[in-house]
């Protein structure tokens, strides 16, 4: 019984990874929609930036994780994309927020 389970372990793991990656991809897409939707509304600029951070940074990171689980052959590219996405997009939100403020003379 346990031998059969062990022999089947790679298949089970692969199926598990497929399922998890599907969940991650769906969640990322959900974040994209939920974060982009307030752009259409009348919220203030900084509030929109908060939502944009959710959709573009966190949602895209979830999607990349899902892809990483599914296609392991291209992992260097995906890891690089993940790193540059998270760091760059976060700093980018900061720059957009800081530049929209009128410059203070101190």
């Amino acid at each position: 019984m346990s031998g059969a389970l062990l022999a089947d372990a790679p298949g089970v793991l692969a199926a598990l990874a497929q399922g998890a990656s599907a969940v991650l991809l769906g969640l990322g897409l959900l974040f994209w929609f939920a974060g982009s939707w307030p752009l259409l509304g009348r919220a203030s600029y900084l509030t929109k930036l908060h939502y944009l951070g959710i959709s573009d940074t966190l949602g895209s990171a979830l999607m990349l994780l899902g892809l990483l689980l599914r296609f392991q052959r291209e992992w260097p590219l995906l890891v690089l994309a993940l790193l540059s996405l998270v760091v760059w997009n976060t700093i980018f939100g900061y720059v957009l927020a800081a530049c929209s403020q009128p410059r203070r003379r101190s």
Binding site: L46, L49, H50, Y51, G53, I54, T57, L58, V86, T90, I91, G93, Y94, A97, A98, Q101, R104, S106
Partner: peptide, 12 residues
Amino acid sequence: TLTPFTIALGLE
């Protein structure tokens, strides 16, 4: 800035 509730606006 990473956490969605807060955004840094600059150093002072």
